[in-house]
Amino acid sequence: MSPKRRILIADDDPDILAMLSLRLLKAGYDVVKAAEGSLVLALVRETKPDLVILDYFLPNVKGDEICLQIKADSALRAIPVILLSASTAALPPETVHAIPTDDRLTKPFDISILLEKIRLLLPAESAG
């Protein structure tokens, strides 16, 4: 049996965090939750997830900063990052588009679309 894939979800809204992680668990993934920006990077290093789902508007450290840090770290660079954003209206578009995520989704989103994106981004399971 192939090991469960681990996904780290970072969102400051408790309901979204709870429901999304429930859905992912039901989908067969292992879930790590984070509600605060400053914890995410440490948590990523510690738990080594296969994919990270980041909300943009996190307290203390914003999603874009975290994404940059992940991608700057050679040990973590390979981890795919999906950025969720409720609104980037306050930011200039160049800033938004410059964030080096592997994919992005605006809230509210279709869960089936998110699941599909996750599937596409996760590396193929090794045989055997």
Binding site: M19, R23, A89, K107
Partner: peptide, 28 residues
């Protein structure tokens, strides 16, 4: 700023609701 904030504030709970309803409908 208000528009951005409001839309953000409105979208957040809506996301949660959608997650829930979708989850129930797809028999999860």
């Amino acid at each position: 700023d208000f528009a951005a904030m409001v839309s953000h504030e409105l979208r957040t709970p809506l996301t949660a609701i959608k997650l829930v309803i979708d989850m129930i409908v797809d028999r999860t």
